[in-house]
Structures are given as structure tokens and as C-alpha cells.
Amino acid sequence: MAGGYFQHGGVSFPAILYSPRSLEAAREFPVEDDDVFNVTYQKSGTVWMLEILSLIRSDGDPHWCRSVPNWDRGPWLETVLGLRRAKANPRPRLISSHLPIQLFPKAFFSSKAKVIYTVRNPKDVLVSLFHFSRIFRPYKDPGTLEQFLHKFLQGDVPFGSWFEHVRGWLGLRGAHNFLCISYEELQQDLRGCVERLCGFLGRELSAAALDAVVANASFAAMSRNRMSNFSLSPLFILDLRRGPFLRKGISGDWKNHLTPEQSARFDRVYRERMAGLGVTFPWDPPPDPPEGETTLGTPPEEEEEEETPPRPQEPPQP
């Protein structure tokens, strides 16, 4: 263990909230067929999606969201306290997780439980995680943005590489109990996304209930809700004197932080690491690099789309 982090399955975790024993217990977590997992790479809309799912569960009535902290409504499976809460919560359960697929509960892959995977522009994830690391005490100080950019692209951050996390989970696309949705889609058409989520969950809401979900899941509503904005979090976990947990809730903020050179460097790594995935994201960089630069990764004409699995298959162990 160094600097408060430890390695588990090749991935770094901060020791304050996580332990090898809790991660092993999460791997053996007894999954029920009616469980709904809210899965993301960190800073990709986890709290927002949890709020949406909580409101869908309560037919748009905000009382549950305003009376129970979100970490109790949809506990983080991999934390010591979250694992205990997830086991104790009544069914049907909402459960949140940042775990990469190879560390996820084994029982999920033979169950009917559902995973909703929210993915976000990794440049915005980078910037959000940089600011978050300055207020989240279990994490190391991020240093300068340039230093943190290097670590992020190397996967030398808690929960490991964004690229590996996304590639791993998107291997389940097409499975009957897996839904991928982007942060950007939620921003562009929240009501349409709520309807899509309801269809996936098999939950029919009235027009009035849909309106209530959309209204109460707005960034402004969440920012005012003490059960959702982490203002109740103890100081040894979050130092909110250095900034709010819910910072901006926008897309494209990376443009206010990254230089053109940093953005181009990120794009080169992105093209290389995401080549051959067979998925197009709204933030994908142009396929050809600027003149004078060498193309990295597999050329588009040589890419092969992976076969869509009919159901989730457990990935090989690291």
C-alpha cells in the first residue's frame, strides 16, 4: 500500500473507504433477479442516474429522494459500508457501483438483474475527476492538471483506466439486461431518456409522473437537495470548503481547461485505445489526426465490429 492506495485485481483503490476483503465480498455478492445496478466509471453521472432511478421507483414522488441519503437509496457496492447496506436493503434493490466488469459480482452473469451503464465524454470525466480529487479526502492530491492528465491517460487513478472500464462494460451491449446511456443524451433529452429507462425496467409511468421525474432530477433540484448533494457527508470524506460536490453538471467544460495540445494528445490516445470497439460516441474525435501527425491505432477500414453477445458472459479474471 502506498499513499493510502492499494491494488486489487490490478486496479487502485483508496484504503479509507475500500478494503481487499470488501472487494472480494462484492465479487461474491448474492445478486437477486430484481436488482438494478447503476454502474459508471467515476464522475460520469452516477449520482444523477441514481436520482433518476429513485424517482422512477417512486413514480416521480420526490419524498424518498428528499428524506433518505442517496448512499442509502443506492449504496455503492464496493465500499465497506455500502456493501453492508446493499445486503440489508429491501427488494427490489437499487445498487450503485464504479467497479470494472472483471471485479463485478459473479452472480450477475447468470441472473436476470439489470445493469444501467452511464458513459460520459472522457475529457469531461478527466476535468471533473481533477476537481473532485481536490475535495475528496481519500484520493491523492491531483497536482497540476497536466500531471493529472498524464496519470489519467495511463490509468494511474482510482478504479483504473477509463478506456478499459468502458471497453469492458460495452462488451455486454446487446444483452437483454444491459442498457448503455450517455451523460450527453441525458442532458439533451432527459424526458426521452427517462422513457427509455422505464421501458428497459418494465415500469410504466403516467405523463404526470414522467414530468415529475424530469423536474425533480434536474441539476438545480439535486443541488438543493441535501440528500443528494453530499452536504451531509462528513468532513473526513469530503472537504466541501474547497468546492461543491455537484460542481457544474454540464458537457464540454473540458474546453475551459485543456490546452489545444493537451486535447490533441488526449485524442491520439483515445483513438488508439478505443480502436475496433464498434461503437460511435457523440464526442469521438475526427478519424484522421492533424496534418503532420502519425495515425495511431487500427485504421478505420481495418476495424472489425465485435459480435454482440446474446447474454452477459463473465469476463476472464485478471
Rank of each mutant, 00 (worst) to 15 (best):
L172I: 05
R120W: 14
P122K: 03
G143S: 03
L149I: 05
D156E: 15
F163V: 14
I135F: 08
F132M: 10
G171I: 10
V166R: 03
R134G: 06
R167F: 11
G171S: 15
F136G: 03
G174T: 10
V125N: 08
G143C: 04
K151D: 10
R173T: 09
K123D: 12
D124F: 13
N177W: 13
G155N: 02
S133N: 09
H150L: 14
H165R: 00
R137V: 06
F130Q: 05
R167E: 13
F130A: 01
R173F: 15
R167K: 12
H150C: 10
G174C: 10
D141A: 09
W169E: 08
T144R: 00
F130V: 03
H165N: 00
K151V: 07
A175I: 02
E164D: 13
P158A: 09
F148P: 05
F163E: 10
T144F: 07
F178S: 00
H165W: 01
R173G: 08
R134Y: 01
A175K: 07
N177S: 15
D141L: 11
P122F: 07
K123G: 08
R134S: 06
Q154I: 12
G174E: 13
H165Y: 01
F178Q: 05
P142Y: 05
E164H: 13
E164Y: 15
K140S: 14
K151C: 13
G143M: 00
N177A: 06
I135S: 15
Q154H: 13
K140Q: 15
D141P: 13
F148A: 02
V157G: 11
S161G: 08
N177G: 11
F159N: 14
R173I: 14
L129D: 15
N177Y: 11
V125L: 04
R167N: 14
H131F: 01
G155P: 00
K151I: 08
L179I: 11
I135P: 09
V166Q: 11
D124L: 15
L172N: 09
D141M: 10
F159W: 13
P122S: 10
L153E: 13
V127E: 01
F130Y: 01
N121V: 01
F159H: 09
F136R: 04
L170G: 09
G160S: 07
R137H: 04
P158L: 10
Q154M: 11
V166N: 06
F178W: 00
R134M: 02
F130G: 00
L126W: 06
P138G: 06
R120I: 10
H150M: 11
F159C: 07
D141E: 14
D156C: 08
L126D: 06
L129E: 15
Q147K: 00
W162G: 03
S128C: 15
V127Y: 00
H150A: 12
F178P: 01
N177L: 12
P158C: 09
S161C: 01
G143V: 06
F163H: 09
A175N: 03
G160K: 02
R137Y: 07
N121W: 02
N177H: 07
E164C: 08
L129K: 13
F136E: 03
F132V: 02
R120E: 11
D141F: 14
Y139G: 12
